[in-house]
Design a protein around this nucleic acid. Structure first.
Lengths: 339, 339
DNA sequence: CAAAACCGTGAAAGCGCTTTCAGGGTGAAG
DNA sequence: CTTCACCCTGAAAGCGCTTTCACGGTTTTG
């Protein structure tokens, strides 16, 4: 069978307790004994049994990444991989493991691990969407949680977010600086904070320039290419059409671009276009898309640090840490005012 | 504290053994008793402790997805998310969980879970790269493993792969059909099977057409955009330059396209270009890229099924199942022979 | 020099579950 | 009416580890 701690203890001529102390780096062990134990471990290639350890210590060294159903259709976006990689980086450093909890539609309870006991020490909720089950769970949770992006209806949850509002404002101000005046926006879903904040940034910029927010220039999308396409078609029915469009995601900008092409309009010749996210595709498009870059990897790293720090120090303290990461304006070719 | 199985048993007026039987759906329990236990569980909102269960049953219901260091720089590709989503789909159906094991550079042992006892019931190795540690581990492994993509040096590992060779051949034959004759290729890394197979398909097509494989028309890349860019620069130094280029990944095709643009050449006007993978970007590029589509989600699902079936039935049997999934030629605008 | 503090160690009691074993009941078979 | 098979249930023995507690020995303190 497998080698157990007992085997190690026997081999090193100590008790199981001492062997355990050595493995867990506890103080108060004679250096000579310590070395004997390590040697036994090396010789036998011993690996501790994780479930046994978790059971006894009540610590699993595992955190979950919760990705709600409603958004993991966007999983193909580079957003999640980069986020997860950021999280993994920190977790690896600190000897933590990552459980992936992609919500599923197949059974009643969409999350496999939420609420299961003793398995997850903490969780990172990826992308602050308002999901029925998730909110319900969060409301009565027993393990520490950090959210990536704010969840408005859950005030008490620590989060790390990107400054969507400021990023959008900078972008629209750039548009204004180019001389555009009739600027439309294709927003994200207004039931998630990122959608609302980016719209708020758009409003801020117009307001600061003394321009009104015209309702007919605001169309709601859902971050997908398809929704960008339809929204653009709607906008094209206006007379006159907008002179520039700020899409709240690059994918929507891509959809908008396709609609514009289909209508025989050129970008930026006939109309300016800008996005948000700076996915790789943004740079590859023709014309290359002006957009706002989010530090996604950093977002993940920060979330992981927040969570792990909390696990190590004060798991139960009602911490309400908030971190806001800056965005960066990426100017390319899609909204240059021609003269 | 937390509710345990003991509480449930007491509440339902049965022994712990019986309560356990109910939860695990064992036969030979009186229906009335069964209902009493379920009711107690409902009333208390009991959730079993996973580590305890794993320890006692020696089954964790967790599988690992192993992503080697050398490739998770490519993690931003849509490849991994889609693959993982496919795996997750099957795992959710069968009540299994997913541990993500992104190899790390921070410490000596790059994988956190490989070899840890009692935690992983099985593992899926994503993308069959030849990684030192991984191979060493695979060679002496105790849990079932399924590989996505063949690992040439490990013959005994079941795998599911895409028919890279055939896909590449079909694509190059399409190029030949368009009238291209001086077709170059930017290959993937030749130390991984996908790289070699796609090159083999390229050779097959040329061979079948009675054309030689010219060494100067073959440049090795590593699937990244950057490597495609450099490789194309190399190819552009040839006289005459190739009349078409088959890049073994869409990202490399994108890099190549940029190099061509920088050189003032138009695609497909001056030179044809094709890729492999059919990532979303391929359709969004200008010109839209002709490429080969892999059924990535299906790849993940199949791998998961293979593994889970094996876990349930014969964990130790030296199964050597192989599944080969077909690819699909996606013809767009980047390699149309002008007359 | 007595008292107190500290160090290194082992025994033993769990952590919360599964599973084997045995036994009592019931109905069918002989 | 006995025997056997079968169903249902509980007692108890772990699964492999951590951690508390106690104890003897050594050092420090007043």
């Amino acid at each position: 069978m497998n080698i157990t701690l007992d085997d190690i203890a026997r081999r090193a001529g100590v008790s199981r307790a001492t062997a355990s102390r050595v493995i867990n780096n506890h103080p108060h062990v004679n250096p000579a004994v310590r070395e004997r134990v390590w040697q036994a471990i090396r010789e036998t290639n011993y690996q501790p049994n994780l479930p046994a350890r978790s059971l006894a210590s009540r610590r699993s060294q595992v955190i979950g990444i919760i990705i709600p159903q409603s958004i993991h259709t966007l999983f193909a976006d580079p957003y999640f991989p980069l986020l997860i990689e950021g999280i993994a980086h920190v977790c690896n450093e600190r000897q933590f493991s990552i459980m992936l909890d992609l919500a599923t539609t197949t059974d009643g309870d969409p999350y496999r691990h939420l609420g299961r006991r003793g398995f997850l020490e903490g969780a990172i909720v990826a992308s602050a969407v308002e999901d029925q089950f998730l909110l319900q769970w969060l409301a009565q949770e027993t393990i520490p949680v950090v959210s990536v992006g704010r969840i408005m209806s859950q005030q008490a949850i620590p989060y790390v977010d990107v400054n969507n509002r400021h990023g959008a404002r900078m972008l629209v101000e750039h548009l204004l600086g180019q001389g555009y005046r009739r600027i439309a926006t294709i927003t994200g879903p207004m039931n998630i904070v990122a959608g609302r904040d980016r719209f708020a940034g758009y409003s801020d910029a117009l307001y600061a320039a003394g321009l009104p927010v015209m309702p007919e220039l605001v169309v709601e999308g859902n971050f997908s290419e398809q929704s960008g396409f339809s929204a653009m078609q709607t906008l094209l029915r206006l007379v006159p059409i907008p002179d520039a469009v700020f899409a709240a995601s690059d994918m929507m900008a891509l959809g908008a671009l396709k609609a514009l092409r289909a209508a025989g309009l050129s970008v930026p010749g006939d109309i300016g276009l800008a996005g948000f996210d700076d996915i790789p595709l943004a740079a590859a498009m023709t014309p290359a898309l002006t957009t706002v870059r989010q530090p996604i990897g950093e977002l993940g790293q920060t979330a992981a640090r927040l969570l792990l720090d909390r696990l190590v120090t004060a798991p139960l303290a009602p911490v309400t840490q908030r971190v806001m990461l800056p965005t960066e304006l990426v100017i390319r070719d899609s909204c240059v005012r021609q003269r």
